[in-house]
Amino acid sequence: MNIDMQTYLIYLLVMAGVTLFLRAVPFILLRKKLKSVFWSSFLAYVPYTVLSAMTVPAIFFATDSRLTGAGALLAAVVASLFGGGLVTVAAVSCLTVLGVDGLMLL
């Protein structure tokens, strides 16, 4: 653990507090729908852009070698292009890492 307990708790409080605020305040106060096409589109794109920015290039550094990370990404993309669900795709990428690691041990 690279941060102390107090720092962890403040981080946790900030993260949980902001998240609850975003969910509870509009749920309690707002009754109107968002009319702006631009802002609804913007928010609709956010999950995909966040997830892709977090995945690439981080996945290359998630394992001990760049090669296994790249293999895992490639395998995950191919598996989901073929219609694999969340768990299938995750399993395929994990197995790819194990397989490539295993090959390198030989």
Binding site: Y45, P47, Y48, L51, S52, M54, T55, A58, I59, A62, T63, D64, T68, G69, A72, L73, A76, V77, A79, S80, L81, G83, G84, G85, L86, V87, T88, V89, A90, A91, V92, S93, C94, L95, T96, V97, L98, D101
Partner: peptide, 28 residues
């Protein structure tokens, strides 16, 4: 070696959320 492999599972799931949307929606 096992946690190393499992470490990419979350990224795999992220891919599984993003790629199907890319398949059906070009602007994504």
């Amino acid at each position: 070696m096992v946690t190393n492999a499992l470490g990419v599972a979350l990224y795999g799931m992220f891919v599984a959320i993003v790629v199907p949307q890319m398949k059906v929606h070009g602007p994504t």
